[in-house]
Write a protein that binds this DNA or RNA. Structure first.
Lengths: 221, 221
DNA sequence: TCTACGGGTGGCACTGAGTGCCTTGATCGC
DNA sequence: GCGATCAAGGCACTCAGTGCCACCCGTAGA
């Protein structure tokens, strides 16, 4: 039933657009009663994003099991779940993206979904940063940065029509955030931290982000 | 008329809640025709946030005139405009905040407003970072971080009931972002960059953000 | 076989947001 | 005084979303 409604709805949305399609049209195509639609989807917008509830649950579960790792790396991996969900069905994702871009109601709905992901990530970070100075603040800023980076990569891919490798796009974007906020562990594995030290000499006034890049490249070198 | 409608609406929202108030109630209290309401406010939600359009315009204007400054510092200052708007009317802001928190429709509307601010900031950063590697990505991540930091400070103040100093709360929060992404210029003015250099020695594996904090404190020392 | 029950479904009527269209009335320039 | 213009009101309509009730059907029990 859920499936039938979602399919009928998407067909009609593609044929005549989201706003030009009424709920009555959808239930007529699906051959069910109007009342049943709202039993399965609380609003007309929900039928466009039938898969996010599950993804939110997965994300929460994944973060439950993220013990002592770098918190930033953990939330980056959690964010990747969303990318993987989109990548599992490129044509659908691209068409939905195009529709969402031009329908204000869907844009607003998507914002609230993204916000829920962000809150899940921030909640995890808040626990991990508990006690640290500005822990809550840092948690929210990092969560926002991770979401923004993820979405930048994902949307670049969606705009391109689903061509190319989403995974590397998103991973590269997330790398920028890990570089700025993570603890540096993770990516280059197998190197012992006590091997050596980094000596950085910088003129005062040097942009901090350039300093960060230097440190990062030194740590990876 | 706009003013009268907004005031009548807010009275009723406080008396019986947002969802329990119909547009007919509002126009009856204001003594105008129902059709006029939708001439001044495209939706019922808009009447709750009558001041954001102006603030968006101010923000755009301020960024127009932000020439060669540190781009991150410029967008932080732009974000402060929102805080100042809220601070100009603490009782109204606090009551609106409480109402927004418990009405899904208003939460969604607020998300879309916040998103518009974020896009203005990101647009400015995109221009400033044009040509740099990952300029677009960096622009969006920094904009998201600035907005998250600003909102963290602002909401802390709103949750406290409007007691204390918003400005220092928000500035402190924004400081964290400038520390991570800014070029370090700005805050400690009047110091010549060529005065001296910073030497930092760190063990490999040190969290990057701790390194950044060290650099920052050294630059301010 | 009849009956009582419960959950999924359909139908129906209602509220309320938002829109299009037309009328009215006031103000302003001629 | 007169026509143009524009803000405002009124009216009717669409459509999303909700509450309520009736129905159908499979099951369990007498």
């Amino acid at each position: 039933m859920r499936q039938a409604l979602a399919e009928a709805a998407f067909e009609l949305f593609l044929e005549r657009g989201f706003e030009q399609t009424t709920v009555d049209d959808i239930v007529a195509r699906a051959g069910v009663g109007r009342r049943s639609f709202f039993r399965y989807f609380p609003s007309k917008e929900d039928v466009v994003f039938p898969d996010h509830e599950g993804c939110l649950a997965e994300m929460t579960a994944l973060l439950e099991g993220a013990g002592g790792r770098d918190p930033v790396a953990a939330v980056c991996d959690a964010a990747r779940l969303v990318m993987l969900m989109y990548a599992a069905n490129p044509e659908f994702s691209v068409r939905r993206y195009r529709m969402t871009r031009e329908v204000p109601g869907l844009r607003c709905y998507e914002l609230s979904v993204v916000r829920r992901y962000e809150r899940v990530l921030a909640g995890h970070l808040r626990e991990r940063y508990a006690g640290a100075p500005d822990g809550d603040l840092r948690a929210e800023v990092v969560a926002a940065a991770v979401v923004a980076a993820h979405n930048n990569g994902l949307r670049t891919w969606l705009r391109s029509g689903g061509e190319g490798d989403v995974e590397s796009l998103v991973d590269h974007a997330l790398g920028l955030v890990r570089q700025a906020w993570g603890d540096g562990s993770g990516s280059p594995a197998g190197r012992r931290p006590e091997d050596d030290v980094v000596v950085l000499v910088a003129r005062k006034g040097t942009p901090v982000w350039r300093v960060v890049q230097s440190v990062e490249s030194a740590l990876e070198g």
